[in-house]
């Protein structure tokens, strides 16, 4: 599945919900299903800055594709991380760097989460892309 296809899948999923409580319930469920990061990666240098709730992100390159694992101590934040991991994980650094991630706006996440959270989300995406860039530079 391409990044765009996964994004569309998420948009379709969120369209099923009538109100925001349902959307949050879904987000919470997604958070619970997130593959937990290996505890050896839950270190200070894996912490994403700008997020008030703590988020850890670990990136690995496997067969030219990046695999992300992540965690957060806040479950809604974890749900947001889960969405990002689902969209971006198992893609090449180039694909990740070119991803527009419009779905965040489309499903209303960015607008409905408070600025603090929103900044966290922005920082998280930035970090995922920075890791992709680092892998790209290394492999060239």
């Amino acid at each position: 599945m391409t990044i765009e296809e996964t994004e569309q899948e998420i948009v379709d999923e969120f369209e099923l919900f009538d109100d925001w409580m349902q959307k949050y319930e879904h987000l919470i469920e997604l958070g619970k299903s997130l593959p937990i990061i290996d505890s050896k990666h839950k270190t200070e240098d894996k912490l994403i800055k700008g997020c008030q709730a703590q988020v850890w992100l670990h990136s690995e390159l496997k067969d030219g594709k990046i695999v992300y694992t992540a965690d957060s101590d806040a479950i809604i934040t974890k749900g947001m991380v889960a969405l990002m991991v689902r969209v971006l994980s198992n893609h090449t650094p180039d694909e990740i760097l070119n991803a527009k991630l419009d779905f965040v706006d489309t499903i209303g996440l960015k607008q409905h989460l408070s600025p603090t959270r929103s900044n966290g989300l922005v920082s998280m995406i930035k970090q995922m892309k920075m890791d992709a860039f680092a892998f790209k530079v290394k492999s060239e």
Partner: peptide
């Protein structure tokens, strides 16, 4: 077992403004 930010976020959806953190 629940992070304060999660509670604050959901309370906000219900129109209740609290501070978390």
């Amino acid at each position: 077992g629940i992070h304060p930010f999660d509670i604050g976020t959901l309370l906000d959806q219900l129109g209740v403004a609290v501070r978390t953190g």
